[in-house]
Simulated assay, not measured.
Amino acid sequence: MKDLLASHLEDCSTDRYFCFSIRCEVCGEYWYSSSIPFAKAAQAVQYREKQELYDAIYQREKQRARATAGQEARERFSQCPVCRRLVCDACFLICEEMDLCRECAGRMQEPGEPVAP
């Protein structure tokens, strides 16, 4: 699941903030991670001669922000055991036999309630 989430994280970061998104493969809605500021954004603009240093710091912080976004996403997305798609909590149903995405549950006539409304 961790690798699946990592492969679906889209980078929405700017030079000042780190942010990532994931699109639900059932409803198509986007979820956005918390926005994390780049600690050296002001210095990176002010001290152009240190650009290489700030680029390295930016990449390190971006990797940390990506890991944090992955952690957040694990609390909001599930993988359907039938179709293997990554779906948001509104599209993932708690069913009697097995928890499924809304589309698979409907196709199999398996009633259930969404993880989150």
Rank of each mutant, 00 (worst) to 15 (best):
A42I: 13
Y32Q: 11
D55V: 10
D55Y: 11
Q79P: 07
F92L: 03
E29I: 08
C24N: 03
Y32I: 09
S34M: 10
S34F: 07
S78Q: 08
S33K: 06
P117F: 12
P111G: 04
S78K: 05
A105H: 03
P81K: 09
A39E: 15
W31S: 05
K2R: 12
I22C: 03
R102N: 08
D11W: 00
E72N: 05
S33C: 05
L93N: 00
A56Q: 14
K40Y: 14
E52C: 10
L4S: 13
C91Q: 01
Q79L: 10
R66G: 02
E61V: 01
A6K: 13
R66W: 06
E52Q: 15
K50L: 15
I94M: 13
D11Y: 04
R48G: 08
R23F: 00
F38R: 07
Q51V: 09
A69T: 02
F18G: 01
Q63E: 13
C104V: 04
L100S: 01
D15G: 11
E49G: 08
Y58C: 05
K2E: 11
R66K: 14
R76I: 01
M1Q: 11
A67Y: 07
D3T: 14
S7K: 09
F77L: 00
Q71M: 11
Q63T: 07
K50H: 15
A65Y: 01
V26Q: 08
I94R: 15
Q46F: 15
P81W: 05
C91S: 02
D15P: 05
L100P: 02
E29Q: 13
K62T: 03
C88S: 03
C80Q: 01
M1S: 12
Q63D: 10
R64G: 13
Q79Y: 09
Y32T: 08
L53D: 14
S33R: 07
S13C: 05
A67L: 11
T68K: 14
D99P: 04
C101W: 00
Q43V: 09
W31Q: 04
E113V: 12
R76S: 06
M108E: 15
R64I: 11
S35R: 15
Y47R: 13
I36D: 09
G106N: 08
C91G: 03
A69R: 01
A44I: 05
E29F: 06
M1A: 10
S13N: 04
R48S: 13
H8E: 04
Q109T: 13
R60F: 12
E10V: 10
E96K: 14
I22Y: 02
S78W: 05
L9M: 06
T68W: 11
A69F: 04
S35N: 10
Y47S: 10
Q51A: 14
K40W: 14
C95W: 00
P37M: 09
L53P: 07
C19E: 09
A65E: 01
Q109G: 10
M108N: 14
P111R: 08
A116Y: 05
E75S: 09
A73G: 01
D55T: 10
A6L: 14
R85Q: 05
I36L: 13
R74M: 09
Q43M: 13
A42R: 15
A105F: 02
E103R: 06
A44C: 07
I36K: 12
R64H: 13
P111A: 07
C27P: 06
P81H: 07
A69I: 03
K2M: 08
A39N: 12
V87C: 00
Y17L: 12
E72F: 03
E72Q: 06
R76E: 08
C83Y: 05
S34A: 11
